[in-house]
Protein backbone atom coordinates (compact mmCIF):
# COMPACT_ATOMS: atom_id res chain seq x y z
CA UNK A 1 0.00 0.00 0.00
CA UNK A 2 2.81 2.38 0.93
CA UNK A 3 4.52 1.50 -2.29
CA UNK A 4 1.38 2.33 -4.17
CA UNK A 5 0.86 5.69 -2.48
CA UNK A 6 4.47 6.68 -2.96
CA UNK A 7 3.87 6.36 -6.71
CA UNK A 8 1.91 9.58 -6.59
CA UNK A 9 4.83 11.36 -4.97
CA UNK A 10 7.35 10.04 -7.47
CA UNK A 11 5.25 10.56 -10.57
CA UNK A 12 3.11 13.58 -11.50
CA UNK A 13 -0.10 11.70 -12.33
CA UNK A 14 -2.32 14.78 -12.11
CA UNK A 15 0.07 16.69 -14.37
CA UNK A 16 -0.07 13.91 -16.95
CA UNK A 17 -3.86 13.98 -16.96
CA UNK A 18 -3.70 17.76 -17.28
CA UNK A 19 -1.81 17.24 -20.56
CA UNK A 20 -4.66 15.03 -21.80
CA UNK A 21 -7.17 17.70 -20.84
CA UNK A 22 -5.16 20.32 -22.75
CA UNK A 23 -4.91 18.05 -25.79
CA UNK A 24 -8.65 17.40 -25.64
CA UNK A 25 -9.59 21.04 -25.11
CA UNK A 26 -7.59 22.46 -28.00
CA UNK A 27 -8.31 19.58 -30.36
CA UNK A 28 -12.03 19.94 -29.54
CA UNK A 29 -11.99 23.61 -30.52
CA UNK A 30 -10.00 23.15 -33.73
CA UNK A 31 -11.84 20.02 -34.83
CA UNK A 32 -15.17 21.78 -34.18
CA UNK A 33 -14.17 24.73 -36.37
CA UNK A 34 -12.75 22.54 -39.12
CA UNK A 35 -15.63 20.07 -38.88
CA UNK A 36 -18.21 22.85 -39.20
CA UNK A 37 -16.49 24.17 -42.33
CA UNK A 38 -16.41 20.64 -43.77
CA UNK A 39 -20.10 20.13 -42.97
CA UNK A 40 -20.90 23.42 -44.74
CA UNK A 41 -18.95 22.20 -47.76
CA UNK A 42 -20.86 18.93 -47.79
CA UNK A 43 -24.27 20.62 -47.72
CA UNK A 44 -23.29 23.48 -50.06
CA UNK A 45 -24.75 23.66 -53.58
CA UNK A 46 -21.25 23.70 -55.13
CA UNK A 47 -20.22 20.28 -56.42
CA UNK A 48 -16.45 20.73 -56.02
CA UNK A 49 -16.81 21.73 -52.36
CA UNK A 50 -19.13 18.77 -51.73
CA UNK A 51 -16.53 16.54 -53.31
CA UNK A 52 -13.73 17.96 -51.20
CA UNK A 53 -15.73 17.60 -47.98
CA UNK A 54 -16.63 14.01 -48.78
CA UNK A 55 -13.06 13.16 -49.77
CA UNK A 56 -11.66 14.66 -46.55
CA UNK A 57 -14.10 12.76 -44.37
CA UNK A 58 -13.52 9.47 -46.13
CA UNK A 59 -9.75 9.77 -46.01
CA UNK A 60 -9.29 10.86 -42.39
CA UNK A 61 -12.13 8.89 -40.87
CA UNK A 62 -10.63 5.73 -42.34
CA UNK A 63 -7.01 6.39 -41.38
CA UNK A 64 -5.78 5.09 -38.00
CA UNK A 65 -5.22 7.95 -35.56
CA UNK A 66 -1.87 6.47 -34.56
CA UNK A 67 -0.68 6.80 -38.15
CA UNK A 68 -1.77 10.45 -38.30
CA UNK A 69 -0.11 11.33 -34.98
CA UNK A 70 3.08 9.46 -35.88
CA UNK A 71 3.13 11.27 -39.22
CA UNK A 72 2.94 14.56 -37.33
CA UNK A 73 6.18 13.92 -35.50
CA UNK A 74 8.04 11.76 -38.01
CA UNK A 75 6.80 13.33 -41.23
CA UNK A 76 5.84 16.92 -40.49
CA UNK A 77 8.49 17.64 -37.90
CA UNK A 78 11.18 15.07 -38.60
CA UNK A 79 11.16 15.22 -42.39
CA UNK A 80 9.48 18.49 -43.38
CA UNK A 81 10.80 20.54 -40.45
CA UNK A 82 7.41 21.92 -39.50
CA UNK A 83 7.93 23.61 -36.15
CA UNK A 84 4.87 24.83 -34.22
CA UNK A 85 6.79 25.99 -31.15
CA UNK A 86 10.43 26.56 -30.18
CA UNK A 87 10.04 24.54 -27.00
CA UNK A 88 10.53 20.84 -27.68
CA UNK A 89 7.66 19.51 -25.59
CA UNK A 90 5.28 22.27 -26.63
CA UNK A 91 6.08 21.54 -30.28
CA UNK A 92 5.16 17.88 -29.81
CA UNK A 93 2.01 18.87 -27.95
CA UNK A 94 0.93 21.16 -30.77
CA UNK A 95 1.70 18.59 -33.46
CA UNK A 96 -0.42 16.10 -31.51
CA UNK A 97 -3.25 18.66 -31.22
CA UNK A 98 -2.99 19.18 -34.98
CA UNK A 99 -3.25 15.45 -35.65
CA UNK A 100 -6.14 14.98 -33.22
CA UNK A 101 -7.97 17.96 -34.76
CA UNK A 102 -7.55 16.79 -38.33
CA UNK A 103 -8.74 13.29 -37.46
CA UNK A 104 -11.72 14.28 -35.31
CA UNK A 105 -12.86 17.01 -37.69
CA UNK A 106 -14.09 14.21 -39.96
CA UNK A 107 -16.27 12.87 -37.14
CA UNK A 108 -17.45 16.35 -36.13
CA UNK A 109 -18.45 16.95 -39.75
CA UNK A 110 -20.57 13.80 -39.81
CA UNK A 111 -22.11 14.60 -36.40
CA UNK A 112 -23.13 18.05 -37.64
CA UNK A 113 -24.47 16.54 -40.84
CA UNK A 114 -26.64 14.21 -38.77
CA UNK A 115 -27.85 17.37 -37.01
CA UNK A 116 -28.63 18.95 -40.39
CA UNK A 117 -30.80 15.94 -41.15
CA UNK A 118 -32.96 16.79 -38.12
CA UNK A 119 -33.82 20.15 -39.73
CA UNK A 120 -36.80 19.82 -42.08
CA UNK A 121 -36.14 20.77 -45.71
CA UNK A 122 -38.89 23.40 -45.43
CA UNK A 123 -36.67 25.49 -43.13
CA UNK A 124 -34.06 25.87 -45.87
CA UNK A 125 -36.76 26.56 -48.46
CA UNK A 126 -38.32 29.25 -46.28
CA UNK A 127 -34.90 30.82 -45.76
CA UNK A 128 -34.25 30.84 -49.49
CA UNK A 129 -37.75 32.14 -50.20
CA UNK A 130 -37.15 35.33 -48.17
CA UNK A 131 -34.00 35.96 -50.21
CA UNK A 132 -31.20 34.53 -48.05
CA UNK A 133 -28.38 33.02 -50.08
CA UNK A 134 -26.57 29.84 -48.99
CA UNK A 135 -24.18 31.15 -46.34
CA UNK A 136 -26.62 33.47 -44.53
CA UNK A 137 -29.30 30.76 -44.66
CA UNK A 138 -26.83 28.25 -43.21
CA UNK A 139 -25.62 30.62 -40.51
CA UNK A 140 -28.99 32.03 -39.44
CA UNK A 141 -31.41 29.18 -39.99
CA UNK A 142 -29.84 25.77 -40.66
CA UNK A 143 -26.77 25.58 -38.41
CA UNK A 144 -28.39 26.95 -35.23
CA UNK A 145 -31.01 24.21 -35.46
CA UNK A 146 -28.59 21.55 -36.74
CA UNK A 147 -26.13 22.12 -33.87
CA UNK A 148 -28.92 21.75 -31.31
CA UNK A 149 -29.84 18.47 -32.98
CA UNK A 150 -26.19 17.43 -33.06
CA UNK A 151 -25.36 17.91 -29.37
CA UNK A 152 -25.61 14.20 -28.53
CA UNK A 153 -23.48 12.93 -31.47
CA UNK A 154 -21.00 15.80 -30.89
CA UNK A 155 -20.81 14.67 -27.26
CA UNK A 156 -19.90 11.19 -28.45
CA UNK A 157 -17.13 12.64 -30.60
CA UNK A 158 -15.84 14.61 -27.62
CA UNK A 159 -15.82 11.47 -25.46
CA UNK A 160 -13.91 9.57 -28.15
CA UNK A 161 -11.52 12.52 -28.50
CA UNK A 162 -10.85 12.59 -24.75
CA UNK A 163 -9.83 8.96 -24.76
CA UNK A 164 -8.03 9.22 -28.10
CA UNK A 165 -5.84 11.97 -26.63
CA UNK A 166 -3.76 9.09 -25.22
CA UNK A 167 -2.63 8.35 -28.77
CA UNK A 168 -0.51 11.52 -28.46
CA UNK A 169 1.84 9.01 -26.79
CA UNK A 170 2.76 8.00 -30.35
CA UNK A 171 3.78 11.61 -30.92
CA UNK A 172 6.16 11.62 -27.94
CA UNK A 173 3.87 13.73 -25.77
CA UNK A 174 4.28 13.01 -22.09
CA UNK A 175 0.63 12.51 -21.22
CA UNK A 176 -1.11 9.96 -19.03
CA UNK A 177 -0.62 6.79 -21.06
CA UNK A 178 3.02 7.72 -21.57
CA UNK A 179 3.43 8.20 -17.83
CA UNK A 180 1.57 4.96 -17.21
CA UNK A 181 4.08 3.08 -19.32
CA UNK A 182 6.96 4.66 -17.41
CA UNK A 183 5.40 3.78 -14.09
CA UNK A 184 4.83 0.19 -15.11
CA UNK A 185 8.41 -0.11 -16.27
CA UNK A 186 9.76 0.94 -12.90
CA UNK A 187 7.04 -0.59 -10.68
CA UNK A 188 6.24 -3.85 -12.42
CA UNK A 189 4.80 -5.29 -9.22
CA UNK A 190 2.02 -2.68 -9.25
CA UNK A 191 0.78 -3.18 -12.80
CA UNK A 192 -2.85 -3.80 -11.85
CA UNK A 193 -3.27 -0.82 -9.48
CA UNK A 194 -1.53 1.46 -11.98
CA UNK A 195 -3.86 0.41 -14.79
CA UNK A 196 -6.77 0.92 -12.45
CA UNK A 197 -5.71 4.46 -11.55
CA UNK A 198 -5.46 5.53 -15.18
CA UNK A 199 -8.67 3.85 -16.19
CA UNK A 200 -10.53 5.54 -13.31
CA UNK A 201 -8.92 8.85 -14.20
CA UNK A 202 -10.50 8.72 -17.63
CA UNK A 203 -13.85 7.58 -16.28
CA UNK A 204 -13.86 10.59 -13.95
CA UNK A 205 -13.14 12.95 -16.87
CA UNK A 206 -15.50 11.34 -19.37
CA UNK A 207 -18.63 10.63 -17.30
CA UNK A 208 -19.40 14.33 -16.69
CA UNK A 209 -19.01 15.02 -20.42
CA UNK A 210 -21.64 12.40 -21.18
CA UNK A 211 -24.01 13.72 -18.49
CA UNK A 212 -23.52 17.29 -19.64
CA UNK A 213 -24.19 16.60 -23.32
CA UNK A 214 -27.27 14.50 -22.55
CA UNK A 215 -28.64 17.33 -20.42
CA UNK A 216 -27.75 19.94 -23.05
CA UNK A 217 -29.30 17.99 -25.91
CA UNK A 218 -32.61 17.90 -24.02
CA UNK A 219 -32.43 21.53 -22.97
CA UNK A 220 -31.51 22.83 -26.42
CA UNK A 221 -33.86 20.61 -28.45
CA UNK A 222 -35.86 22.64 -30.97
CA UNK A 223 -39.62 22.39 -30.39
CA UNK A 224 -41.45 21.64 -33.63
Amino acid sequence: MDNFLSLFETYDVAGAFWVNIQLTFWAAIWSFILGTILALMRISPIASLQWFGAAYVNIFRNTPLTVIIAFGILGLWGQLNVVLAEDFQLNFLRLAILGLSIYHAAFVCEAIRSGVNTVPLGQAEAARAIGLSFLPAARLVILPQALRGAVAPLGNVLIALTKNSTVAFAGSVVESSNLMKQMIEFQGDLVIPIFFVFAMGFVIIVVPIGLLTTWLSRKLAVAR
Binding site: E125, A126, A129, G131, L132
Partner: peptide
Protein backbone atom coordinates in the same frame (compact mmCIF):
# COMPACT_ATOMS: atom_id res chain seq x y z
CA UNK B 1 -31.46 34.66 -57.54
CA UNK B 2 -31.56 35.49 -53.82
CA UNK B 3 -32.32 39.11 -54.72
CA UNK B 4 -35.14 38.10 -57.00
CA UNK B 5 -36.60 35.72 -54.45
CA UNK B 6 -36.81 38.60 -52.00
CA UNK B 7 -39.38 40.11 -54.39
CA UNK B 8 -41.46 36.94 -54.44
CA UNK B 9 -43.25 36.08 -51.21
CA UNK B 10 -43.92 32.43 -50.54
CA UNK B 11 -46.34 30.78 -48.13
CA UNK B 12 -45.95 27.03 -47.67
CA UNK B 13 -48.39 24.27 -46.84
CA UNK B 14 -46.39 23.38 -43.71
CA UNK B 15 -45.83 27.02 -42.62
CA UNK B 16 -42.05 26.52 -42.26
CA UNK B 17 -41.59 29.18 -39.62
CA UNK B 18 -38.01 29.23 -38.33
CA UNK B 19 -38.45 26.91 -35.36
CA UNK B 20 -35.66 28.35 -33.19
Amino acid sequence: LAKLRADVGMVFQSFNLFAH
